[in-house]
């Protein structure tokens, strides 16, 4: 076996080290800005799943497990590449009975998504493009 694998070896890296809420990006990428018009979706190769043992939703991707809390799982369940960040925040606002356009909730959603974009768990489609490549025409 190649000794970068597992073993006592790769412990220096981030393998399977869960971040309880998707925090602590392990890459020193620059600031990611998430706009209201962005349409987030799970990155290719990332799977949203559920661990019965832990009773938590989880993200699975190469060499990484992210254990999600309930609000994180709630956000990701709406990241379908069609809804905008603004629509996701609004939908969650209704669900959690927040006032319309609650700036705290809005900030939470955008920060959470920014962290996952940095870790390449989430991709942002530009507001003007739909996932199938068609241009989005307003109005």
């Amino acid at each position: 076996m190649d000794p970068t694998r597992n073993g006592p070896v790769r412990n220096g890296s981030t393998r399977d080290r869960p971040a309880p809420d998707g925090s602590a990006p392990d890459r020193s990428a620059g600031e990611v800005r998430v706009r209201h018009s962005d349409r987030p979706r799970l990155a290719r190769h990332v799977r949203l799943s559920y661990s019965g043992t832990r009773q938590r939703h989880i993200l699975l991707l190469p060499e990484t497990v992210v254990v999600l809390n309930d609000s994180g799982a709630g956000i990701l369940a709406l990241c379908d590449g069609r809804r905008t960040v603004a629509e996701i925040a609004a939908e969650l606002g209704t669900r959690y009975r927040r006032v319309p356009d609650d700036p705290v909730l809005d900030g939470e959603v955008r920060r959470f998504l920014a962290r996952l974009v940095t870790r390449r768990c989430v991709e942002l489609l530009d507001g003007s493009e739909l996932p199938d490549g068609r241009e989005h025409v307003d109005g």
Binding site: N6, D16, S49, S51, T53, R54, I58, L60, V65
Partner: peptide, 9 residues
């Protein structure tokens, strides 16, 4: 047991 990732090596 809770295992989520399987590395086949």
């Amino acid at each position: 047991l809770g295992v989520l990732q399987c590395h086949l090596s």
